[in-house]
């Protein structure tokens, strides 16, 4: 039996049926002749937009819509990603190159882009490689930059300074890096996200000083829970912790646990998810045998996608989940392990 709650509450856009699909097409917001452009530089690793990426696009949308004549938001990202239009991008530029490699070379490529497109704003995430890139560009362009912006409106941008005791404010400058969870992401009619082919940026220029570089991906099993992007968590419905750990390794997820399990000493306290443990920033949360106490749900409030396996149909976690399986976690774990082992060969 399958209960589909989603069909009861269809959102504003689209729905089943051909007529509505046509309406959906017409509903796309198209900016044909923008008066100016706003460039949003996205990390978009593995071809998907993170929440932070969508916030950067939201900031771009804010500035583009407020300017006279209406502007276009151009997303600059390493590879094609889904949901760009829904996130508020009018155009997209695929820059090529890797997720992180060679920021110095990319800065040169972006300077060339700056000359051809002359955008009104450049928006970056205050996050690793993008923060680095923004600063390199500010120095090369000899332009003021507001870094780590924590409040952005069309009229002013504000950032903390002097160790957080004072703040700097001014009209939004051309270059800005935005702090995470400061600007709301865009949630209106989807935009066009037209790919600009001719503008493909090649990042051939390299940093001559770097002789050799190699990226070592983070190890999910030893990662701190707060920085993990995918957490698989065990609750009272799990009794075989050996299988649970093997499953976490096979899924390449960071293991977590509910309070009950940590109290029983079956998992370390660092693994506890919830109000008195770690509040997650993960994209996806996989709850095995967790009913979902309010304190636990607080810890996963920021998780975009939740999968729950629980024997109780009426558990709060089942209600919260995007995919809920009403089944014994102890039976699903070996089946998953078996399936994943098959997939490897």
């Amino acid at each position: 039996m399958r209960i589909d709650r989603a069909s009861h509450s269809v959102g504003l856009v689209g729905g089943p049926g051909r007529e509505e699909a046509v309406a959906f097409e017409a509903n796309v917001r198209i900016v044909d002749e923008p008066a100016f452009t706003v460039l949003a530089v996205l990390g978009a690793s593995n071809g998907r937009l993170s929440r932070f990426d969508r916030q950067i696009l939201g900031a771009g949308r804010l500035l583009a819509d407020a300017g006279e004549g209406g502007g276009a938001v151009i997303a600059v990202l390493p590879q094609a990603a889904d949901g760009l239009g829904e996130a508020g991008a009018d155009r997209a530029i695929i820059r090529g190159g890797g997720d992180f490699a060679d920021v110095a070379g990319r800065a040169e490529a972006f300077l060339a882009l700056d000359r051809t497109l002359t955008p009104r704003h450049w928006l970056f995430a205050e996050n690793g490689p993008e923060a680095d890139l923004a600063r390199r560009m500010a120095i090369r362009l000899k332009e003021p930059i507001l870094t780590d912006v924590e409040h952005l409106t069309a009229r002013q941008a504000v950032r903390a300074s002097h160790g957080g005791l004072r703040e700097e404010a001014g009209p939004p400058p051309r270059l800005m890096t935005i702090q995470e969870d400061r600007v709301a992401s865009y949630a209106d009619r989807p935009c066009e996200a037209r790919l600009l082919d001719a503008q493909t940026v090649s990042a051939d220029a390299t940093d001559s000083a770097i002789v050799e570089s190699e990226i070592v991906p983070g190890d999910p099993s030893s990662m701190a829970l707060a920085e993990a992007d995918f957490v698989v968590s065990a609750g009272n419905g799990v009794s075989d912790f050996d299988a649970f750990h093997r499953l976490a390794a096979a899924l390449k997820a960071t293991p977590g646990a509910s309070r009950v399990v940590c109290d029983a000493g079956l998992m370390p306290r660092e693994a506890q998810v919830g109000a008195s443990g770690t509040v997650l920033s993960a994209d996806c949360y996989f709850a095995l045998g967790i009913a979902g106490a309010p304190q636990h749900l607080q810890g996963i409030a920021g998780c975009e996608h939740v999968i729950a396996v629980n024997t109780d149909l009426h558990a709060a976690m089942v209600e919260r989940a995007g995919l809920a399986i009403v089944q014994d976690a102890q039976k699903v774990m070996p089946a998953l392990l078996h399936l994943l082992r098959e997939g490897e060969t």
Binding site: I3, G302, C303, G322, I325
Partner: peptide, 25 residues
């Protein structure tokens, strides 16, 4: 900003009741 499941996220999606564990996997 409060970290919440966004509107586009999938809270309250499908619940599959008592499937075969292999299908569930």
């Amino acid at each position: 900003l409060m970290r919440q499941a966004d509107a586009e996220s999938d809270g309250g999606g499908a619940a599959i009741i008592d499937p075969d564990p292999d299908d569930a996997a």
